[in-house]
Simulated scan of single mutants.
Amino acid sequence: MSRNKSVFNDKQRILRLYSILISKQAMSVDQIEDLFFVGQKTVQRDIAAIREFLADLQQGEEIKSEVVYDRKMKKYKITERDHLFEVFDKINSEENPFYF
């Protein structure tokens, strides 16, 4: 498959993929490759970056929200999205010492 140059840089691509996954959409490797004009290795690196971000985000808590590969659907998806939104609420609360 011929690849066109992506209009996204690495960070933009990873953030876009994350936003797609968090919006309840599951994506196959082929869909990700076609959307961003990248190869399978890049997809693997991007998924690893999102997994690392989610683990860091849930530091100090049980990790419930993560990117998993659903073998039945043959797609990546994020588990326990509601838990993730609870984590975001804690991070953004005024009681958080890092809240601006």
Score class of each variant (00 low, 15 high):
residue 24 K to T: 11
residue 62 E to F: 06
residue 46 D to S: 10
residue 32 I to S: 07
residue 97 P to I: 09
residue 92 N to V: 05
residue 58 Q to M: 04
residue 84 L to K: 03
residue 75 K to Q: 15
residue 22 I to H: 11
residue 28 S to Q: 00
residue 25 Q to R: 09
residue 94 E to P: 02
residue 64 K to H: 12
residue 97 P to N: 06
residue 59 Q to H: 10
residue 44 Q to Y: 12
residue 85 F to A: 10
residue 44 Q to D: 12
residue 19 S to I: 09
residue 100 F to N: 15
residue 16 R to D: 14
residue 5 K to S: 10
residue 93 S to W: 04
residue 84 L to S: 00
residue 79 T to P: 09
residue 51 R to V: 00
residue 49 A to C: 05
residue 70 D to F: 07
residue 41 K to H: 07
residue 66 E to R: 14
residue 13 R to S: 01
residue 69 Y to K: 08
residue 33 E to P: 03
residue 63 I to M: 08
residue 38 V to M: 05
residue 9 N to A: 05
residue 32 I to W: 06
residue 32 I to C: 06
residue 1 M to E: 10
residue 68 V to A: 06
residue 14 I to D: 12
residue 68 V to H: 06
residue 74 K to E: 12
residue 39 G to V: 01
residue 24 K to Y: 11
residue 78 I to N: 07
residue 33 E to M: 14
residue 10 D to M: 05
residue 59 Q to R: 11
residue 16 R to G: 04
residue 39 G to F: 01
residue 53 F to K: 13
residue 12 Q to R: 06
residue 77 K to H: 08
residue 85 F to D: 13
residue 40 Q to R: 14
residue 82 D to L: 09
residue 5 K to A: 11
residue 48 A to W: 02
residue 12 Q to I: 00
residue 4 N to G: 05
residue 84 L to V: 05
residue 25 Q to M: 08
residue 57 L to K: 09
residue 34 D to C: 12
residue 37 F to D: 13
residue 81 R to G: 02
residue 30 D to P: 03
residue 75 K to R: 15
residue 29 V to C: 14
residue 40 Q to C: 03
residue 10 D to H: 09
residue 34 D to W: 09
residue 71 R to E: 11
residue 18 Y to G: 05
residue 97 P to G: 04
residue 76 Y to S: 02
residue 93 S to C: 10
residue 20 I to T: 13
residue 52 E to I: 01
residue 64 K to Y: 09
residue 60 G to Y: 00
residue 54 L to C: 04
residue 82 D to S: 10
residue 76 Y to C: 03
residue 86 E to H: 13
residue 56 D to R: 13
residue 48 A to N: 14
residue 39 G to E: 04
residue 86 E to T: 13
residue 81 R to F: 10
residue 77 K to V: 01
residue 24 K to A: 10
residue 57 L to H: 07
residue 91 I to P: 06
residue 51 R to H: 01
residue 55 A to P: 02
residue 1 M to C: 10
residue 43 V to C: 00
residue 41 K to I: 03
residue 45 R to A: 06
residue 59 Q to M: 08
residue 9 N to K: 05
residue 1 M to F: 11
residue 6 S to F: 04
residue 36 F to C: 02
residue 92 N to I: 11
residue 91 I to R: 13
